[in-house]
Design a binder for these strands. Sequence first.
DNA 1: TTTCTTACA
DNA 2: TGTAAGCA
Length: 132
Amino acid sequence: MSDTYGIAELAREFDVTTRTIRFYEDKGLLAPLRKGQRRVYASRDRVRLRLIMRGKRLGFSLDEIRQLIDLYDVDPSEVTQLRHFLDKIHEHKEILIGQQKDIAETLAEMERIEAQCSSLLSEKQKKRQTAN
DNA sequence: TTTCTTACA
DNA sequence: TGTAAGCA
């Protein structure tokens, strides 16, 4: 099982350009192995890229995504670090909970409008039938 | 052909 | 991030 990937391969899979993947590396979000000069991505890198894309969809900055991803593969040996990570987690959780609330409210709003439109439409249909 | 770095938009 | 130049 060749659990390694080339940059073009990952770019295709995640629908981004190779430039974008290198860009994320520059920003410290990715750290692929090197085979000479070529970048060799392991499955962990692929997982990371997946997390990056998800973070982007959630509206996090690359900097925030990096902090979030770092939480995954750092060994929790230092108490100080642990407290720091805990703070980061709380921070992100608050943002996500806030977004969750926004989504719920927007959804409720849309459903209200949807119901309003539906009843309006059925009303017009009734009038049409009455007229005919 | 593909990837890489660097630099500029 | 896109694009381009010059390499390997």
